Simulated scan of single mutants.
Amino acid sequence: MALTSSHNVISSDRVEGTGVYNAAGDKLGTIDDLMIDKLTGQVRYAVMEFGGFLGIGTDRYPIPWNMLKYDTAQDGYVVPIDKAVLEGAPRYTSDRVPDYDENYSSAINKYYGF
């Protein structure tokens, strides 16, 4: 029996490194990591790298997964966010990953209007 692939399912290692763009087509960053709910198995946040140089001084911005829409023309994800919105968004450095507890998740969701 031959296995068929589904275009609606993708490995996390293929998502990581994918570009993230705003609606105007400006590149905001790339997906660094996915945060998965342990109980439901659903992706809750895509963590986007933004800023820095070659990973040094780069901030990570958790964005609610349901805000990202894959765009085949961009070969990346599009979010309804511009760079000015990211300036005040929740973020952290790679060496200070926060606990994604209820308070932190609530702060992210509130910032993005969820």
Rank of each mutant, 00 (worst) to 15 (best):
A23K: 13
T93F: 13
D26H: 12
R96C: 15
L86H: 04
I81H: 01
A73E: 04
G55D: 07
L3A: 11
S105D: 13
F53D: 05
K27M: 07
D37R: 08
E87W: 02
I56W: 11
V15S: 01
D101I: 07
L3D: 12
K27I: 05
E49Q: 11
R14F: 10
F53N: 00
D59L: 06
S11L: 15
V85I: 11
E16L: 13
V15M: 08
S12T: 13
E49L: 08
I56D: 06
F53Y: 14
R14I: 09
P98L: 05
V9H: 08
D75N: 13
G55L: 02
R14V: 10
N103L: 14
V47Y: 00
A23N: 15
V15G: 03
G113Y: 01
T40M: 11
A89K: 04
K27E: 12
I56M: 09
S94K: 06
L3P: 11
T18F: 05
Y21D: 03
D95M: 10
V15K: 02
K38P: 14
D75C: 06
N8G: 08
N103D: 15
I81Y: 09
L28K: 00
H7E: 13
A84F: 02
D32S: 15
P80A: 13
G17T: 08
T93L: 11
S94W: 13
G17E: 06
K69V: 07
D33I: 09
D59Q: 04
Y104M: 02
L86T: 00
D75M: 05
L28R: 02
Y104I: 01
L68Y: 08
L39K: 14
S6L: 13
I81T: 02
S94I: 12
P64N: 04
L86I: 04
F53A: 10
W65N: 07
G76Q: 06
A107E: 12
Y112C: 03
M1D: 14
S11R: 12
L54G: 02
N8S: 12
I36G: 01
I63S: 05
T18A: 09
Q42D: 12
I108P: 01
R60M: 10
G19H: 08
K69F: 03
Y104F: 14
D99R: 10
Y112R: 05
Y21M: 01
A73G: 08
S94V: 07
Y77L: 04
G55F: 00
F53M: 10
D99P: 05
V85Q: 14
L68M: 06
T93C: 09
G88S: 10
T93E: 09
D59Y: 11
M67L: 15
A46D: 04
E16A: 12
A89I: 03
K38S: 12
G55E: 07
R96Y: 10
I81G: 03
Y70V: 00
G51K: 03
M35I: 14
D101P: 02
I36T: 15
S11I: 11
D32L: 00
S12D: 12
